[in-house]
């Protein structure tokens, strides 16, 4: 494998030789560095899976209830978030890419902000806006609407942290579609919606699909903002990450392990599905 990075040379001169050794050394270093990182990423997941498989036989009926409730809630809320993100995020990505408007840069930066913010900040921000004493929450409360401790709050937290990932990726996808192609279709008499549906969307699909996967994964893993803003109650706000943390902090490592493994397998399934779909669309494109 190190040979991949060494230049193909048969020169025997000593200076060339030294260069060859140096690049071979570099090749080995690259290989070791990469291997270390792979090992570091794989080892904890492997160790967790191994322990979880050992423990899963001992999962109590209550543990199974908890697992089922949390998994159902995680899947429904993350998919609901994904639907909202797609419906609202696609137009936003399109506007940011296709239209020059005042404050576009500002909006662009604002949309990226939740990516770099810790979820704890997102949790506090959501509380200040939509909490019962929050800026909008106060007003909602007077109308008799409270979002705290509801499944709606879970979806709001997920949309807040995950939407930027989708918008970012969808933008990249839309940027790869040249306006000339769209204009050509327009000249041929296609309406704006037809152009978007038949030209823009298919061509931008790899970026959009990648965005969907990233956003879904982020929504599925959302923890900090959810526990701060939505609360922690089985079946209502307790998603998989909250259930895992709850079991861990309750000293019930056994259930925490099994839940973690289930979430790992779910995430893996999402990743693999996305891989298959995107490679298929690339194949057909080629």
């Amino acid at each position: 494998m190190p040979d991949l990075v060494t230049p193909t040379t048969s020169a025997r001169s000593s200076s060339r030789r030294a260069g060859h050794d140096a690049s071979r050394g570099l090749g080995v270093a690259v290989f070791i560095a990469a291997g270390l990182l792979v090992l570091f990423l794989a080892l904890p997941l492997g160790a967790m899976s191994w322990r979880a498989i050992q423990e899963s036989r001992g999962l109590t009926p209550e543990g199974r209830d908890l697992l089922w409730q949390a998994l159902t809630l995680s899947l429904t809320t993350s998919l609901a978030s994904l639907a909202i993100i797609t419906l609202l995020g696609t137009p936003l990505a399109w506007l940011l890419v296709r239209r020059r408007f005042r404050g576009a840069r500002l909006v662009d930066t604002l949309v990226d902000l939740p990516i770099v913010l810790p979820p704890a900040v997102a949790g506090i921000a959501l509380l200040m806006a939509f909490g019962r004493q929050g800026v909008f929450g106060q007003w909602l409360d007077q109308l008799g609407i409270t979002v705290g401790f509801t499944t709606t709050a879970v979806v709001m937290a997920q949309v807040f942290v995950a939407a930027p990932f989708y918008v970012r990726s969808a933008k990249t996808g839309l940027l790869s579609v040249s306006p000339e192609t769209e204009e050509a279709a327009m000249v041929d008499g296609a309406t704006g919606w037809m152009v978007f549906r038949d030209i823009t969307l298919p061509l931008a699909l790899p970026g959009i699909a990648a965005g969907l996967v990233l956003a879904w994964a982020r929504a599925l893993g959302e923890f900090g903002a959810t526990i701060m803003f939505a609360g922690n109650f089985p079946g209502i706000t307790q998603t998989m990450p909250l259930a895992i943390y709850g079991r861990f902090s309750a000293g019930d490592l056994q259930s925490a392990l099994v839940l973690s493994l289930v979430l790992l397998v779910t995430s893996l399934a999402i990743l693999l599905t996305a891989r298959t779909v995107s490679s298929r669309s690339e194949d057909t494109d080629g």
Partner: peptide, 15 residues
């Protein structure tokens, strides 16, 4: 998903 999202909050039992 939209259907699930609408139906979700009420349909969970609280054990």
């Amino acid at each position: 998903l939209a259907a699930i999202g609408v139906a979700a909050p009420g349909s969970f039992a609280t054990a």
